[in-house]
Simulated scan of single mutants.
Amino acid sequence: MIEFNYELDFKIDDEKSFRNWISSVVEDHDCTLGELNFIFCDDAYLLKLNVEFLEHDTLTDIISFDYTIGKLIGGDVFISVERVRDNAANLDHSFLDELKRVMIHGVLHYIGFNDKNYKDKVEMRFQENASFLLFK
């Protein structure tokens, strides 16, 4: 089950397409979708979480709390819409493409992909790009 929660004046236009897409990505990696919550917020909201739970006093676009058990994928994915919008502009990407990248990035972590070193970052980016092909 995928839920979308909004802590600011923002809403995904076609939640069904996003649910289907994320479900497809999870299934494509031979995993099962459990409970997955996306919480869209602003920089201040996410900064507070970053300080409180990770002891990082910096802005970020995503913080995820992983509740995955084996191949049962679940967790809470907090996304700063402000940061995604700024990053999209800085990278010359559309807001929607950057939002999808950030969303699936969190899910790919739950599936087991990491981005701590160069090799892992290259693989993560490959997986992010491959997942875009499943969006309908």
Rank of each mutant, 00 (worst) to 15 (best):
I2G: 03
E3M: 12
F4P: 00
L8P: 03
D9A: 08
F10V: 04
K11M: 14
K11Q: 13
D13V: 05
D14M: 02
D14Y: 12
F18H: 01
F18I: 00
N20V: 02
S23L: 09
S24M: 04
D28W: 12
H29K: 15
T32S: 10
L36D: 01
N37Q: 04
F38S: 00
A44N: 14
K48M: 11
N50L: 05
V51C: 14
H56E: 15
L59C: 10
T60G: 13
D61F: 02
D61R: 05
I62G: 00
F65E: 11
T68Q: 09
I69E: 09
I69L: 13
G70D: 10
G70S: 12
L72Q: 13
G75D: 12
I79C: 03
R83A: 13
R83Q: 12
V84Y: 01
D86I: 14
L96A: 05
D97T: 06
D97P: 04
L99W: 00
L99I: 00
M103V: 03
H105T: 00
G106K: 03
V107Y: 00
Y110L: 07
G112C: 12
G112D: 08
F113W: 02
D115I: 06
K116A: 14
Y118L: 15
Y118E: 15
K119T: 11
K121R: 14
K121V: 04
E123P: 06
E123V: 13
E123H: 04
M124F: 08
M124L: 15
F126L: 07
Q127V: 00
A130G: 06
A130K: 15
S131L: 08
S131P: 05
F135S: 04
F135T: 03
F135V: 03
K136F: 10
